[in-house]
């Protein structure tokens, strides 16, 4: 009988191995075994989105995924948004628009907002609000978060146009 599993996975592009009990969530494994504490637990039941990560590119709550399920798959966390020391445009805009107050929901919002913009580069306000409905924020009333996502989308579309 094995209660633990050695998991080989890719996290933010790095190959990582960790052993975790089979009933441990990916959230706990990321925080306590891999050291990625940017992934937050707000509820542990999939209701707040603070633990949002991508699993093979798809947005999920890491509290609703087992650590063992990450085996052979690609996990993306907030820690992976920055490339070569440069902030992702969403990170820039969140700071610029004061889209965070306490900041504990911010990693989840950023991962979810990136997943949205990857799919839909030109979302309406309503689309943004519904796409981010799985991420609770108690400080901002969401106003500046939605504006930051709108501003990012606009900038990224412009940048793409320039390039392309």
């Amino acid at each position: 009988m094995t209660d633990s599993t050695l998991v080989s996975t890719t996290i933010n592009g790095d190959s990582i191995e960790f052993a975790c009990p089979n009933d441990e969530t990916l959230l706990d494994a990321l925080r306590n075994r891999v050291g990625l504490t940017g992934v937050k637990e707000g509820c542990g039941t999939g209701d707040c989105g603070a633990c949002s990560v991508t699993l093979d590119g798809r947005l999920v709550c890491s509290c609703l995924v087992l650590g063992v399920e990450a085996s052979g798959r690609e996990v993306g966390t907030v820690e992976g948004l920055t490339t070569n020391g440069e902030l992702h445009p969403l990170q820039e805009k969140f700071i610029e628009h004061a889209a965070l107050q306490c900041g504990v929901c911010t990693p989840g919002f950023l991962v979810a907002a990136k997943a949205l913009l990857d799919k839909n580069p030109d979302p309406s306000e309503t689309e943004i609000r519904y796409a981010l409905a799985g991420n609770l924020c108690r400080c901002t009333g969401y106003d500046k978060i939605v504006r930051a996502v709108q501003a990012t989308a606009k900038d990224m579309r412009k940048a793409k146009k320039k390039k392309g």
């Binding site: 990625l36 504490t37 940017g38 992934v39 937050k40 966390t77 907030v78 820690e79 948004l81 920055t82 902030l87 990170q91 969140f94 700071i95 965070l100 900041g103 504990v104 911010t106 990693p107 950023l110």
Partner: peptide
């Protein structure tokens, strides 16, 4: 403290 908070480095 913005950068720390958008990169997940801030410690709660």
């Amino acid at each position: 403290d913005g950068v720390e908070k958008v990169t997940g480095k801030a410690r709660y």
